[in-house]
Every structure is written in structure tokens, then in C-alpha cells.
Design a binder for these strands. Structure first.
Lengths: 339, 339
DNA sequence: CTGTTAGCGCGTTCAA
DNA sequence: TTGAACGCGCTAACAG
């Protein structure tokens, strides 16, 4: 167990000395270079094993000039299952290329997001996968300009070229709203994320377009944007349901709103009021168990992460050759959960 | 925008040249060394800003000999809300110390976990926070022996010294089972994770102890260990409920089992069979909305992650001084959700 | 087949 | 107050 430094891991030189060769030869063996005499190779291997040697990846990436084998994942809230599934999907694909995922949780703070991206670049990540919180993407554009591959998930790049994976926000919202209209609803409310979020506005557009197709115009009094957490959504929905001309159905632009609104509707029902139909974007666990009819816009959320990971991995492999940016759009489908 | 390398980020020398000083002086300025003439300091600052310079963290950590400012988080399944909350809690604390979290998702594979830990060490992470999948922790012990701080969450260290944060598994399971007994249940089944998982066995012990306290002995035919996903739990519970002397209540050792068992009980009820009471370890979103009475063992799952993060951060700050290992145990409480 | 030289980007040491 | 040399651990290039 002899080692050179205090408590540290053994270095290549330790291995080389123990095997009675130069550091270079040891390096060759450990990199499986065939140009080494089998005998010495065995000696080096034995020495490395005896010392529990592992090459210092920090030194390697510095020397090799490439990145660190790390990919930054920039999201707003890992506790939201949407993001944790994304993270898992991303990581599952990247691992196959020997890449690891670094968490960057911004908690909706645009300033934190800027800092985070700059820090990731300084850490020489091989790429960044981001779901930016706001409309300003200059920090991502800057990273891309410095040669760091950037892939956006669930939002398109604004003002620069980058790969992205989107969900058919417009189509999904349109279909769900149309479904409510088919069932005879005419006053349909909308609850969603802050207007700065791309998916929110796109889904609002889909909702409005479906109403327009039915000869209706969206009533701004029935539209509540800005809820990020279920609690806020419950409050907003409760207000809508207390309106003189209350909506008979509600459409939510993401799972946080759907869950919050569900609680409001359940309370409404418990108070003996009229039934209110509910539809929302994003499928989620236990949606089938809520005891209320529920129409959800589903899509393959693991695939969203995997696709983003694949795009990034291919950029990393390509090493910066100027392939044109690719935009993927995942389809959605409607799921009905019974009452 | 002149830079030295192709597409790469500017280096310290680029800044120095532009400012007309040596690299050393530039380094001093950027590290806020006071021993620099204000005038030159400004020149360097201006040059750095103009180039958008950021120190290369890879080079820094190699030179400084310390770690990389990264912490590895080793878990089995990030899609499980238990782990994603843990990750968020960990990261939220580490960020305050300038540390970033690297995801290590093992998908229950012990071999993958070994490889992962070795890789994290090779990457010179400053520490590892792990929820090991199996009973064998030699890979973690090895990492700790090489001087990498290791903190275990939700499992105690086996065979080596390390900090850990546990939940009162025994007490929580005991209390929940006792609650079912108070309600008159005498045949209570147990559904849980594979026996190799510490929380599973500890919670089984709590369950058995509560039965013993009531003068009963655990009936092994009513115990099903090994379910990792809700689907498996549903099947196992369905089998239990089909037994000649079926249990009248079920206790689950984690949220995956509780959710799966819930579905089995709901189907059972829909088939017009007798009511079955349900209790489980882990609180989870929408547990209040399932339309079934439900007793859950709750604890502060964010705090679990934060506490683990704090323990690790303090080790990193201490830089390897031999403080004795600390073991924290988080209390649990029973939560009743109404039918 | 193996060893020597050199340097990735930065910071510590010592000299100017 | 500033700069030159050296090395962290590793590997590409060129000897031998």
C-alpha cells in the first residue's frame, strides 16, 4: 500500500516505479496500446492492480485538451417529476458514451442560471443540456459561441443556433381543448406557467386556437398565468370557479397546475357545486387514481431526455464539426382517466 | 475576440498578453491578490472582461491538488421521487459551498455501482453521497480509504467508518403497524424491497416488533419482499389478498410498494371484496387524493438530502481532519389521509 | 519495444 | 510590485 503523497491516490509514476519501467510505458499499458511487450505489460498491470491505481481524469482532460466527460444539466426544479425524468433520460444515454451529468438546479432564478452556465463552461463540461427558465438565452448563446455544444429541451433556441427537442405543445393543447369542446363545454379556463415560459405560451396558443376553431374567443378573465406550484394553482382555480360566470372546464398547461387545480375542483365538488371538467398537459403518476375524469396530454417524457442526450452525445463525438442544428418534435397523445 | 486556440476559451496568458503583463500578474489580479498596483489591476480586469475570460477549473484543481468541486451522488433510480428530492436537497446545500452534484444513477445494478464509485474517485470528486443498492459496501469503503469523504443516506455504513443520515426506520414502521393493530387488525401483511436493502429489513423489524408487542407473531406467508416497482407490488398484493386467510391490512416499506399495493386494493374493492387497510413508509404527492384511508410514515425528505449535503460539505471544508463519524437519525411521524 | 522531452493552464516559490 | 522557473499527472511527439 505504499503511495507517494499523503493519503492521496497512487499516480502513474508510482505504478511505473513499482513495475520498473518509465511512466510512458506504464501509460501505454493502461491505455491498451498494443506496442508493448506482453511481459512488461503484465508487470505494469500487476503493479497497477496492487496499488489500486486509477488514472487521474483531471490530469487527462487537461493534457488531452478535450473536456471533462461531464455534461451540465440546467433545470429549474428537480423535484418536479418532469425534470427528474428528464434528468434520468439524459443520464441514461450519456452514460453509454462515458459522460456524466452534473446537476444545475436554478430554482427559477435567472441570475443563478447565468452564473451556473458560466461556471459549467469554466469547468470545461463537454456540453450543456438546458431547459432555460426565462426568455433571455444570451448566456446559452455565449456558451455555444465558445464552442460548448448546447442542447435545449422543451424550449427552442432564441437568437442562436442549437439543437433542441420539443414537445408538440401547440398540437397537444389544441387537442385537449378540442376534446373539452366536443363534450359541450363553452366556458373553458386556462391555467399555466408564467408567460415568459415558451411551453406556457405555446400551449396557450393551442388552447386559444381550438376555441377559435369552434367559433369562440378566449375570455381573458378565464386565463391565469404565473402559477409555478400546485398551491398557487389551487388558489387561482378557486378564484376562477367563484366567478359569476364560472368556467365549466379547465385546461392546465403543466402537471404542477393540473395537480393544484385538481384539488380546487375536488373541494368544489365536495361543497356540492357543479362538476367541472379538467384537462392538462403532462401525464403523471397516480393520475388514474384521482377519482375524477381527467384528460391529459401525454408524451414520452423519458424519450425527451434520451433524445436530448443523444443529440448532445453526437455533438461531443463530432468534436465541433459544423453540422446544422437539429430540431426534434415529440408527438403527444390524449389519455383519458376515468372518474 | 482574438484567442489563442481554435474555438477554445481564452487562457490566462491571453489575458496577460492583452494587458501587457506576465501571466503571473494576471493570475494575481484574478485571485484578488492585493499586492498589485491598482493601475495594472485595472488593465488586467479590462482585458479579462473583454475576452470573457474564466479560469480553467480543470487546470486549477490539478495545480491546487484539491478535488474538483464536484460531489458524486450515487442512487438507484432518480425517477423515484424519494431520490429526486434527495438530489435536490443535497444540491441545494452543496451549491452554497461552491460544490456541484454529479448524478450517478445505478439502476440497482451492483456492478454498475462499483464502477461508478471508482470512476467518481478517478474524476477526483471532493466527496460521495450514496444510497447503496446492496449490502456490499466495499467499494465505498475503498473510496473512503483513499481519502474521499463518503456520506451515506438512508443506510448505515457497513464495515467502515463514515457519516450517515438515517430515518427512524424501525420506529416509523413500528408506529404504523401499531396503528393498524389499534384498529383491530390481526392479519397484517408486509410488502417491501429486497431483503438486502437496509431500510427494508429495518422496517420489517419494526413491523414484526409491533406485532410481537401485541402478542402476535409475523406470518411469513404474509410477507413479500423484493418488489422494486409499483407493478410488482400490485401483483404481490393481489396474491396476498387471494390467500385463503387473506390479510385485512397491509403495510408497505416504501412508496413504490405503497403505490402498487394501493392499486391492488382499489381493484379488490371494485370487485366488491372486503375493505383492506393500507399503511406505508414514505409520504408522497397526491397521497391525500386516492380516495382510500391511508396511514403513512412521513419524514422530512428534503432534510434528508440537506443533512447529507451538510455533513459532506463540512468534511470537504475540514480537508480530511480525523473527526469521528457522525450518525444522524431523522424522526418520523404518522400521517392519516382520509378516505 | 521503450524512454526522453515537452507542455496542457494554472499557482506556488523565490528572485529581481 | 512584478516576473521566471518549476511542477501538478498525464500523454503526443519524437528519439533510441
Amino acid at each position: 500500500m505504499e503511495q507517494s503523497r499523503r493519503g492521496g491516490q497512487p499516480t502513474l509514476r508510482d505504478v511505473a516505479e513499482r513495475a520498473g519501467v518509465s511512466a510512458m510505458t506504464a501509460s501505454r499499458v493502461l491505455r491498451d496500446d498494443p506496442q508493448v511487450l506482453p511481459a512488461t505489460r503484465e508487470r505494469v498491470r500487476a503493479a497497477a492492480a496492487a496499488l489500486g491505481y486509477r488514472p487521474n481524469e483531471v490530469a487527462r482532460s487537461l493534457r488531452l485538451g478535450r473536456g471533462t466527460g461531464l455534461v451540465g444539466l440546467v433545470v429549474t426544479n428537480l423535484a418536479n417529476p418532469f425534470y427528474s425524468r428528464l434528468a434520468l433520460g439524459v443520464d441514461s444515454v450519456l452514460v453509454q458514451d462515458g459522460l456524466k451529468t452534473v446537476i444545475g438546479n436554478t430554482g427559477q432564478d435567472p441570475h443563478a442560471e447565468r452564473e451556473l452556465v458560466a461556471d459549467l463552461v469554466a469547468r470545461r463540461v463537454d456540453g450543456i443540456i438546458a431547459v432555460p427558465a426565462g426568455a433571455d438565452q444570451r448566456h446559452l448563446a455565449a456558451a455555444a459561441a465558445e464552442g460548448v455544444p448546447v442542447v435545449l429541451a422543451s424550449r427552442p433556441p432564441e437568437g442562436f443556433a442549437a439543437d433542441c427537442v420539443l414537445v408538440d405543445d401547440f398540437g397537444g393543447a389544441h387537442a385537449a381543448t378540442a376534446r373539452l369542446l366536443e363534450r359541450g363545454h363553452r366556458r373553458i379556463g386556462f391555467l399555466g406557467s408564467p408567460p415568459a415560459v415558451h411551453t406556457g405560451t405555446e400551449r396557450l396558443r393551442g388552447y386559444a386556437a381550438a376555441l377559435a376553431d369552434a367559433g369562440l374567443t378566449a375570455d381573458t378573465r378565464l386565463i391565469r398565468q404565473g402559477q409555478t406550484e400546485p398551491r398557487e394553482a389551487t388558489r387561482a382555480a378557486t378564484e376562477l370557479l367563484a366567478l359569476p360566470e364560472a368556467p365549466t372546464a379547465l385546461f392546465c398547461s403543466n402537471n404542477r397546475n393540473t395537480i393544484g387545480v385538481f384539488r380546487a375542483i375536488r373541494a368544489h365538488r365536495a361543497a356540492g357545486e357543479a362538476e367541472v371538467a379538467l384537462a392538462g398537459f403532462d401525464d403523471f403518476e397516480l393520475a388514474d387514481a384521482l377519482g375524477l375524469p381527467l384528460t391529459l396530454v401525454a408524451y414520452d417524457s423519458d424519450e425527451l431526455g434520451r433524445a436530448a442526450g443523444r443529440l448532445l452525445a453526437s455533438r461531443v463525438r463530432a468534436g465541433g464539426s459544423p453540422t446544422p442544428p437539429r430540431h426534434l418534435v415529440l408527438p403527444t397523445s390524449l389519455v383519458e382517466y376515468g372518474g
